[in-house]
Amino acid sequence: MAKLTIADLKKIKEEYHAGQALREGGFKVKITVHMGTCGIAAGARPIMNVILEELAKSGRKDIAVTTSGCAGLCSKEPMMTIELSGEAPVRYIALTEEKARKIFAEHVMAGKPVKEYALVVGHETTY
């Protein structure tokens, strides 16, 4: 890749937001599996596998699956966050493979959050 200039940084930022934004025509759902050391130790990998499997089965192309590092609440790992376009992100905790399948079917596919597995909606405070 070529060396970046400062203008490039801004362009990457804009392009990224344009490309990744959850919107019509682009991705409509973003699934983030939180995979820091403790998340992995608590079983985040099998959860990721289930999600990828379900995604393949669904055949949908408008779902982005990604990872992040530690999400902060180690005692409730494994965790996953699901964000539908136009809605606040929902964080699920203490996942198992069955729970992940249910969340995929009901929240991702049908748009109905699974209340009993969810901890919280919204973003953390940053200022």
């Binding site: 919280v120 909606v121 919204g122 953390e124 405070t125």
Partner: peptide, 15 residues
């Protein structure tokens, strides 16, 4: 489902 502001674990944190 509760929001961040309602859960003490998140409410008091600033990242």
């Amino acid at each position: 489902i509760p929001v961040m502001n309602e859960i003490p674990f998140f409410k008091h944190q600033v990242l």
